[in-house]
Design a protein around this nucleic acid. Structure first.
Lengths: 238, 238
DNA sequence: ATAATTAACTTGTATTTACAAGTAAAAATA
DNA sequence: TATTTTTACTTGTAAATACAAGTTAATTAT
């Protein structure tokens, strides 16, 4: 697994500021301390500080303005990289519940997998799981996940109930999502999907097929997501 | 309008390499010249060259590998930021045709617009247009665009037929898309959409509502896109 | 011949220094 | 008072330098 011996300084500052933004120490619209102030505060030089800030800007946490400063721009990113924007008012994480319908099991990759696989991935098999996610006790997402079983000890026995898969991978395995590709379609709900998402058959459902890249070059996460967008939309930045 | 007096060196090299990648001088999987070689070739120092390369990497044109080099990773980005991935083999730009169904006109913003507008935007009105895009002569996209009519001389009289709106904005007004937000839904086709996209009523259609940010801080592009995803998927990177 | 080591590359991180350019508030002017 | 100019801040661009760390191929030793 990727366990970096030494974490770069710019990365440390990035994590500090990201945490502060997430926790509300700096709120949306706030000006971050100036680059020179951050230099003094954390004992770094300006290029190093700037590297932290430009990474934050790339990730959408701040917007930089020449002559002005860095303005906090907190983004909704509750559910992986996607998030939900509803007709109702702003929703907190507390309304979101996850139910595992198929617990993580080690198995062979399905034939005709949605994305091409490397030999290493094929050999090592995959960890499979199915989840349904509820918003205000209404099922919104039906999520089928595949992870190559490469160097992920004890993952099948972990608790997935109320934490994001991404968070577990981050906290326990130092795996971070760097980006990815996705295919999006609108399809009619089949019997299984309509039952799981409590909707009528043939009603439009959003279908996403995603391949997520991690900081571990050979490791990808795959997921097939079905989403009931009758009441909520999928919200995303790019 | 934003007409930069002096284009930074790193930006010049970025444009050169981006063009070379787009035109196939460097093909997918190729190694770019090393940073030191680029320094010599273009008479820049390594930090400057690295800034070009990291911008290219951020935009998804290359992937950098420590100790190895920068590998070209050409992405399909024919239609704005989205692109289409079909079941058929790789499709070139030549198969894509655009038909303007409502020519650009200056008008007031619709009431209950899909995104909140600033006062400046409301005052200046909007340029409205509707387009249908064909892939292999099959209508795939029905695209309704709104642009705030701020400093865009003669835009309503320009030729939009076979060039991307983005390309015109880039070439004539130095406007570049920096990012944006979007809402995605799966909806049943109504009468108008089913007619325009030549599909049955009530069939699932992908609906995107997008707000695109430009290098001009006050200027945004808005579009409402309906997409027939029966044969093709929307493909995207993040 | 094979395996281990070394050398020569590559990109990654970091410091230091300098000036350009955009922003906003204070100061000087009309 | 209202306007213009100045000043002091901010981030943006760029150079020169140094070493760390990952990759690859040539060299060396077994």
């Amino acid at each position: 697994m990727v366990i970096p011996k030494t974490i770069p300084q710019y990365r440390k500052l990035y994590e500090i500021l990201r945490k502060h933004i997430s926790e509300g120490v700096y709120k949306e619209g706030d000006l971050l301390p100036s680059e020179n102030e951050l230099c003094q505060l954390y004992g770094m030089t300006r290029p190093t500080v700037r590297q932290s800030l430009s990474t934050l800007a790339n990730d959408g946490y701040i917007i930089k303005h020449q002559g002005k400063g860095s303005i906090v721009h907190h983004l909704p990113r509750e559910i992986g990289i996607l998030s939900v924007s509803g007709t109702t008012s702003a929703l907190g994480d507390r309304n979101l519940k996850t139910r595992i319908t198929v617990k993580p099991i080690l198995m062979k990759w399905p034939p005709d997998f949605m994305f091409p696989l490397t030999e290493l991935e094929k050999e090592s098999g995959c960890i499979y799981m199915e989840r349904v996610r509820y918003l205000d006790d209404v099922p919104i997402f039906y999520d089928i996940s595949f992870i190559a079983s490469i160097n992920l000890p004890r993952i099948t026995s972990r608790q997935f109930e109320n934490r994001s898969l991404f968070q577990i991978l981050r906290d326990h395995y130092h795996i971070e999502i760097k980006g990815g590709v996705q295919r999006i379609k609108a399809i009619p709900a089949n019997t299984k999907i309509s039952r799981l998402l409590q909707m009528k058959k043939e009603q439009p459902v959003l279908h996403l097929e995603r391949k997520l890249e991690t900081n571990n070059p050979g490791l990808f996460l795959y997921s097939s997501i079905f989403c009931n967008t009758e009441k909520y939309s999928i919200f995303g930045r790019f």
